[in-house]
Structure formats: C-alpha cells, structure tokens
Design a binder for these strands. Structure first.
Lengths: 223, 223
DNA sequence: TAGATTGTTAATCGATTAACAATC
DNA sequence: TAGATTGTTAATCGATTAACAATC
C-alpha cells in the first residue's frame, strides 16, 4: 500500500500540488488549449474531444488527455469535454482568472490594429492606455482606449497595477521604450519589434517572431 | 569497434544524415538561434557565445552547443561562434538559403504594418503582393508592395511560386480567405486572426497568439 | 601563460505514443 | 446495446543539465 502510493507519486501528480509550479511544457500546452477553447466557445461549440483539440493545436491527443487528467476528471467518456467548464478549469490552473491590466506603447498602424482587436481582451487582458511620443496622436481613441503622452506612463502603471507592457514601436526606439517601461515597474515586455532587448533579470521579454515561425513551418514543407 | 560505432549512432548524429528530417524541437530551436543571430549581425556583432545566445532565447547554453555541434564544429573555444558564418550554416541546415515569395492578404492597419516592416524580409521572405477586397485600396503601395484586387490571387500565386500566405484580415472573413488561398495553391497559412481555420491535411496553419504567450509568461510571474 | 568557451559525456528527467479497459 | 471517447498504463524516445577535458 505505502509502496504503491510512493510509486504512483509521479511528476504528473506533482503538478497538482498547490505549492508547485507547472513545468514549462505543461504551462505552454495548457495555454494553447485555452486559446482553442475560447475560440470554440465563441463559435457556439458546447463540447470538444481531445481529438479535435489535437487537430487545432498539433499536440497529440493522448498528451492532451494526460495533461488534463493530471488536474482532475474533466471529461465524459464517449462525449468529450464541456468547453465552458474546461475554460474555467484551465484558467484556474494557470491563475488567469479575472482581468489583467496592460499598457500598449506605440499608436502607429500596428498599435492601432492591436487596440482595435479582441486578441488581448478575449484572454482577460485589458489595455488600459496607449502611449505615443507623437503629440498629434495624444487624446485620440482606438478601440476603447485613449492615447496618452509618455509623461503619464509611470502614473498609469502604478495606479492601474500594470505588469505587462506591449511594444508596438520601431526597432530603433524599442530599447528606450523598454527601459522606460521597466523603470515604471513593468515586469513582462511583449516585443513586436525585432530589436534584441536588454532588461534586468526580474523582467521577462517575449519577442514576437512570425518569420521564425514561418521558417520552421517551411522546413517541414520542404522536407 | 563495430559495437562502439553502433552505440554512438545516436539521435543527435541522425540529424546529420541528408535524408533525415530534423526533429520538431531541433528545427524550432535552430529557427530561434537564427532570429537572434540575424539581429545580432544587424547590430554589428561579430562573434557570439552560447551563453549570450542562451540569454536571448531562454534556451540552456549546453543545449545550444549540443544542437550546433550535431552539425559540425562551428565554434572556436575561448571565443564563441562567428555570427556571419553561423547564420549561413543554420540557413543551410534549415534549407532557407535564398528567397521565398509570400503573399499578404489584408491591407488594413495590420497589413500595412507588416508590409512596411522588415520582419519578413530579414529572414528571406519577400512579400510579392498584398490583396484586399476593398477596391479603394487597390493600386496603393505600402513598403515596396502594391495592393492587388482579389481576382489576381490565383495568377500571382502560380506565377511567383508562392507557398506561404499571411492573413491579416478580420476573424469573420478569415476562413473564406484561407479557402481562397488554399484553392490557389498556398501550402502554409500564417493566421493573424483568432479564427480557428479548417484546411486540407496537406496545408499547415500557424495562428499567431500573443495573448497565449502572455498568459504563459504571466503564469511564471505569478508563481 | 591564464582565462574563456567549446564540444562531449553521462545521468536524469519529462514528453510522446500506442494500446486498451472503463464508462458515458 | 453499440459506438465513442476518456483516463491510465507501460514502454520508448528526446530534452535537459552539470561537469569537465580540450583548446583557442
């Protein structure tokens, strides 16, 4: 009995423990399931099978069932998973229940496209302000959000408890803007430029790289 | 001798064989090294160590040296890797030497931002045409590229040997445009909308998902 | 020479997959 | 009942890491 219990206490089970972080891989995969689930919910889908999730995420269906069953019995045999409740469960696991305030820097074409879209709002990220150095843009609204002058940055970040800053500026000014965001207290920088950014160790940079994703896809097409 | 040879013929070595595909993981990591290297080259950097690459990619430095040494001895002990030659080596491995023609669908804010940036050109992807359903936009130029009417799509894809289509359109029209691209012969669809796309099995969809990347980064910030 | 960094080994850990009983 | 799909096992494979000799 005791022996069995010990043997069965695998890494999978450890993911359940409150004090433990998910592994990088599990967290990344859960995030992708969530993306598909939220979109499926929008389309009015009520249940989804691990096989369907596999088609959209390119993750093996056994892997998906395994990931999910590590946290509870969310599915119904012969039926699949309820989209609604699975969204909630994964949100709980990823601690992304509720809203997170973010700021957007850069109100050019890219900034406007981001502000006008649902891509962040659908996942619980609310853009509380756009910043731009161009005084002509200050006061304008894109989507629901107003463009502020750079002088407001520190105040907004503090008052609205902003942890994430999104950079939609040219490569040439990306480092300066990142420094400013970090100075204001932002801990996660999402970089849409190509610039390699230097930040303190307690700050995370994520650089968007569509061309890299394409290279990768192309390799498997060519071979 | 024979025994040793067999034992040493590991998965790592197999990556070298001409006929064999890279594993998904290796191809993904090589693509990321390439992204950093190209940017480092732009900044005038001549050599780079595995440690520096690790800082920018969040990939363990031993893993990087291991990945690279599987294909040859590219580095110099005590010095690092020459940025120039490593770019060329990885391009050879990923078979991304030379140019690839791509088309962009959608000339709104996002499409304009993409067309005006270097993000694709820097990695050897040339945007040969932008398409839009809005007749008022046809004939305009963004970056170096002209906006075409949708009627030209099939001809351009065939004449310019286009394999990749980038979708910068609203979710509501994404599936229709994807169908049209696939019909014209495109094999890789890069989807900037949130729409889940259905495509034939020989076509690959890659959906950009900044919010998912943020969720993931935020999880590790919160824990 | 002294310091730095690669290339490689060896050990561990997590991911992947097929298969199938359980059960809706 | 019959069909579908989960939850789980067991086996394999690839990723990860520390450590260090080789060598620039």
């Amino acid at each position: 009995m005791t022996e069995n219990a010990a043997v069965e206490d695998t890494a999978q089970d450890l993911a359940l423990a409150d004090g433990d972080r998910l592994s990088l891989g599990v967290a990344a995969r859960l995030s992708r399931y969530l993306q598909v689930l939220i979109q499926a919910r929008k389309m009015g889908k009520e249940t989804i099978s691990s096989q369907e999730l596999a088609e959209y995420t390119h993750i093996n269906s056994t892997q998906i069932r395994r990931d999910l069953s590590g946290f509870g019995k969310f599915g119904k045999r012969g039926v699949g998973y309820r989209v609604d409740s699975l969204v909630e469960q994964i949100r709980k696991i990823l601690r992304s229940v509720g809203q997170h305030n973010i700021v957007l820097f850069g109100a050019g074409n890219l900034g406007q496209a981001i502000a006008s879209s649902d891509i962040f709002a659908d996942h619980g990220f609310q853009i509380v302000a756009i910043f731009d150095v161009d005084a002509k843009l200050v006061g304008k609204r894109f989507g629901e959000v107003e463009v502020h002058g750079v002088a407001d940055l520190e105040r907004v970040v503090e008052e609205q408890d902003v942890v994430v800053g999104v950079l939609a500026v040219p490569s040439s000014s990306a480092q300066d803007v990142a420094d400013r965001l970090v100075g204001a207290g932002v801990k996660i920088v999402f970089n849409y430029s190509e610039q390699l950014l230097r930040v303190p160790p307690d700050v995370t940079v994520h650089t968007s790289s569509p061309a890299v994703d394409l290279l990768y896809a192309l390799y498997f097409y060519l071979t």
